[in-house]
Amino acid sequence: MTALIYIAAALAEIGGCFAFWVWLRLGKSVWWIVPGTASLLLFAYLLTLVPSDAAGRAFAAYGGVYIVASLAWLWAVEGVRPDRWDVAGAALCLAGAAVILLGPRTA
């Protein structure tokens, strides 16, 4: 369930940020900020659903998922294929996220 929450949060965050990018960098209508803001609010809410004893740990682990989702967005939406360095970096980040999420904790 945590993986699904992180994936949904990543899509919401990237979509929200992209809406602002479209408005500010591509010169599109200011109305792009309406769905962008809603998407960013959804992102923040979704991260509160992650079962974690600390917000910082949930956010840190999310970072690896965000990086992979950003590269998927790069390819699917922007039409730029990630290169081997992108893929290697994303794999390292996912490994780090797994250590943060799954590492044994002492009380």
Score class of each variant (00 low, 15 high):
Leu92Ala: 15
Leu4Arg: 06
Ala3Glu: 10
Gly56Leu: 11
Ser29Ile: 12
Thr37Lys: 02
Ala55Arg: 13
Ala72Asp: 04
Ile100Ala: 04
Leu42Gln: 07
Ala54Phe: 11
Ala8His: 08
Val87Thr: 11
Ile33Phe: 08
Ala90Lys: 03
Glu78His: 00
Leu41Ser: 08
Val77Lys: 11
Ala10Asp: 02
Gly89Tyr: 08
Ala90Glu: 04
Ala9Met: 04
Thr48Met: 07
Ala69Tyr: 01
Leu92Glu: 07
Ala19Gln: 06
Arg84Val: 11
Ala9Asn: 03
Ala55Ser: 12
Arg84Tyr: 06
Ala69Ser: 11
Leu11Lys: 07
Leu101Trp: 03
Asp83Phe: 03
Glu78Asp: 14
Leu42Ala: 15
Leu40Asp: 11
Val80Thr: 14
Leu47Val: 13
Leu94Glu: 07
Ile5Cys: 02
Phe18Lys: 09
Leu26Pro: 02
Ala3Phe: 00
Leu49Thr: 15
Leu41Met: 14
Phe20Cys: 02
Ala3Pro: 00
Tyr6Met: 05
Ile7Glu: 01
Leu94Pro: 05
Ala44Thr: 06
Val87Arg: 10
Gly36Lys: 06
Ala12Arg: 06
Ala91Thr: 15
Ala9Arg: 01
Tyr6Thr: 05
Ala10Pro: 03
Ala91Gln: 13
Phe20Leu: 10
Ser39Glu: 11
Ile7Phe: 07
Val65Gly: 01
Leu4Phe: 08
Gly63Leu: 12
Gly27Ala: 10
Ala97Glu: 00
Ala9Lys: 02
Ser29Tyr: 12
Val99Ser: 01
Phe59Arg: 02
Glu78Trp: 12
Trp75Gln: 08
Trp21Glu: 07
Trp21Asn: 05
Cys17Trp: 00
Ser52Lys: 02
Thr2Gln: 06
Gly63Trp: 04
Phe20Glu: 03
Ala19Glu: 01
Gly27Phe: 10
Trp73Ser: 10
Arg57Met: 06
Tyr6Val: 06
Leu102Asp: 02
Ala76Val: 15
Val68Arg: 01
Ile7Met: 01
Leu42Pro: 00
Ala72Ser: 10
Thr37Gly: 13
Ala72Gln: 06
Gly103Ser: 12
Gly56Gln: 14
Ser52Phe: 04
Arg57His: 09
Ala69Leu: 06
Thr48Ile: 09
Ser52Gly: 04
Ala58Phe: 04
Thr2Gly: 00
Pro51Ile: 01
Met1Thr: 10
Ala9Thr: 01
Thr48Asn: 05
Trp31Phe: 14
Phe20Asn: 01
Ser52Leu: 05
Ala12Met: 10
Leu4Cys: 04
Ala88Asp: 03
Trp21Ile: 09
Arg105Val: 14
Leu40Ile: 15
Leu92Arg: 07
Leu92Ile: 15
Leu71Arg: 13
Pro35Ala: 03
Val68Ser: 05
Ile5Arg: 00
Gly15Pro: 04
Gly27Ser: 09
Leu41Pro: 03
Leu46Pro: 02
Pro82Met: 07
Gly64Ile: 00
Val22Ala: 10
Ser70Pro: 09
Met1Trp: 12
Val77Met: 12
Leu42Phe: 14
Val30Lys: 14
Trp23Lys: 14
Leu24His: 10
Gly79Val: 13
Leu42Asn: 05
Arg25Ser: 15
Ala107Gln: 03
Arg105Tyr: 01
Leu4Ala: 12
Thr37Leu: 14
Val68Pro: 03
Leu74Gly: 09
Val87Ile: 15
Ala55Glu: 13
Leu102Val: 05
Ala88Gly: 02
Gly63His: 06
Ala38Arg: 02
Gly89Met: 10
